[in-house]
Amino acid sequence: MIVPFLFFVPPAMRATPEPASPCASFRAFAASVQKGQTESIEFHTSWLADFKDGNPKAIGAFTRCFDRGYAPGHAVCSYLSKNGAVEFAGDNARQALACLLPGTRFGQHDLALEALDVSFYFGTPQRGSNMTIRFESDQKMGGMVLTIIADGY
């Protein structure tokens, strides 16, 4: 006799749906910042060695993300923590820039970003956010850090 098993998964236990596109959380973050408000996230990555305050014997891919309690920033952190690159962490900066500055192209060849510091506006000239994307070595924590800053106007 075969007995089928049926079970109910309460909504709170279901997986959170992924954003509609890889760019959705980046764009929602940039669009959410109000005039006179500044919000930022930091996505830290470390490949092969843990962060300086971590386990010195640990080997692997390590991430930390700081959203400063801002819900749209939390969505970016959640996306990056689940889908972000660690070994080739520059890919995260490249993706953020391409999402927030439509039309950005990096060519047909592989591009390995070692550092990036770029500013541009997101939205319209009348309303939006002045964006800064920085990707650099993190001397304090170790590894690399991607910082995305939105300054609403």
Rank of each mutant, 00 (worst) to 15 (best):
M1D: 02
I2N: 08
P4M: 15
F5K: 10
L6N: 01
F8T: 04
A12E: 14
M13N: 11
T16N: 08
E18N: 07
P19I: 05
P22A: 13
C23Y: 04
R27L: 05
F29Y: 04
A31H: 02
A31G: 00
A31W: 06
S32I: 04
Q34G: 03
Q37C: 06
T38D: 05
S40K: 15
S46A: 13
L48D: 06
F51K: 07
K52W: 11
G54S: 10
K57L: 14
F62W: 05
R64N: 09
C65I: 07
F66Y: 07
A75C: 00
V76G: 01
S78W: 13
Y79T: 03
L80P: 01
S81Y: 10
S81F: 11
K82P: 01
N83E: 11
N83Y: 10
G84H: 09
G84I: 03
V86S: 01
F88T: 02
D91R: 07
R94S: 01
A96Y: 01
A98V: 07
P102K: 09
G103F: 14
G107I: 01
H109D: 13
A112E: 09
L113K: 05
L113S: 06
D117C: 03
S119L: 13
R127E: 13
G128D: 06
S129I: 11
T132E: 14
I133H: 01
R134L: 15
R134A: 04
Q139F: 08
M141V: 02
V145E: 01
